[in-house]
Design a protein around this nucleic acid. Structure first.
Lengths: 210, 210
DNA sequence: TCCATTGTGGCCCGTTCGGTCCAGAACTTG
DNA sequence: CAAGTTCTGGACCGAACGGGCCACAATGGA
């Protein structure tokens, strides 16, 4: 049962990994993103990662663990990107506008049809996998916090009506983005989607009365 | 191959069905709603319907056809309900308010966590099943049309700022509702969700300036 | 050079999936 | 009552699923 203690100070060195973990995780993320959790088979994961079963299971555990890992990485990366945008943005309001308009940037509509991995996963799995729902709550709350900071800055910069509560408006922007993601998934005309996003932004983020 | 013609005028009458089709369809709808498409097994469907495999497949075809049937029935019923509400509502604006606040009506949050069958299905299957995406487009477009009519009435009744474009505001209300559905699925606090819904409504449906 | 250790990939297994099929039951008509 | 038709439910099937397992490769220290 227990390994002998002598192994602790007299161990051979293991064979190093032959694959790049980040590269594999991104390929797997794309597969889950395109197909959804249930529709992605283990064979799909092996194919896009180029690994064998032993390697994949040895490195990341089973399908569910791998999915949660990928989802958390995705969320963390997006949050980091949002915070960096706020840090480097010329104006706070630009961050919120870009956040809401995000999916409309691609004129082919492919990005809109693909949606957001977190939103898609939450829709598919929230009922059966509490971990996914909790992850979504955590992420959306963090996003709302960043957007609130952006709108507070926007008020100081004269881009947002001072009568607006930044926290409420930030949450309204989040709601709008999630609604646009849902509509984008239906494959509706990208021009109409863009118009809706702009119209919603105009209502939610009123400029100060001159 | 071809059946003889004499059967046409000399046929015995078949054994009648032993189940109520509507009752079965509602039970199956609830199962798909609670678990999602992929996570619902044929055994689940047999269990909740109380039928055997022969009956279920004979009456509705395979799992996919059955799901599409249930989804279309669900959409049609909701559209009909929305139109009837508009026809019988005291004020047009009430219809839109109820539409956006819909999921927040249950203080336990169970309704919000369950979400909307169409929104859930669209999130899970839009990428792989064009029929579902098309159904979602059709339904959301029809909803927007009804909401537009409701807001036009609201302007005539003095409940909505005449400067607001009813069609744009209706689509914004739809976006907001879809965003709230997505957030509700995360299981977030129902009070916070309600506050967000009310705050979004106040921004999207401004009363006329007195 | 040999050993200890971990990476590697594919073979293999039990389970469960969606779906078909069939033998008998129920029922109306002649 | 006999015939013809559909309904019913469960036995059955091939396929694909997720996952365990193992023989071998690669590596660096002793």
């Amino acid at each position: 049962m227990a390994r002998s203690v002598q192994n602790l100070y007299c161990a051979g060195m293991p064979r190093p990994r032959e694959f790049d973990e980040n590269h594999v995780l991104l390929a797997i993320r794309d597969e889950f993103w395109d197909k959804g959790y249930a529709a992605t088979t283990t064979d799909d994961l092996l194919r896009v990662s180029g690994l064998g079963k032993g390697s994949l299971y040895g490195a990341f555990g089973d399908k569910r663990s791998l999915f949660l890992r990928v989802l958390r990485d995705y969320d963390d990366a997006n949050l980091l990107m949002l915070r960096e945008r706020l840090a480097s943005a010329a104006r706070g309001i630009d961050v919120v506008r870009e956040f809401v308009l995000g999916l409309t940037g691609d004129p082919t509509g492919a990005v809109a049809r693909r949606g957001c991995l977190l939103a898609n996963s939450n829709g598919e799995l929230a009922a059966s996998t509490p971990d996914v729902a909790a992850e979504a709550r955590r992420t959306y709350d963090a996003i709302a916090t960043v957007l609130t900071a952006a709108l507070e800055r926007a008020q100081g910069e004269g881009d947002l009506d001072p009568g607006v509560d930044p926290s409420e408006a930030a949450r309204a922007a989040l709601v709008a983005q999630l609604g646009l993601i849902a509509l984008g998934r239906t494959g509706m005309d990208i021009g109409a989607l863009t118009a809706m996003a702009r119209s919603a932004l105009a209502r939610l983020l009123p400029a100060p009365a001159q």
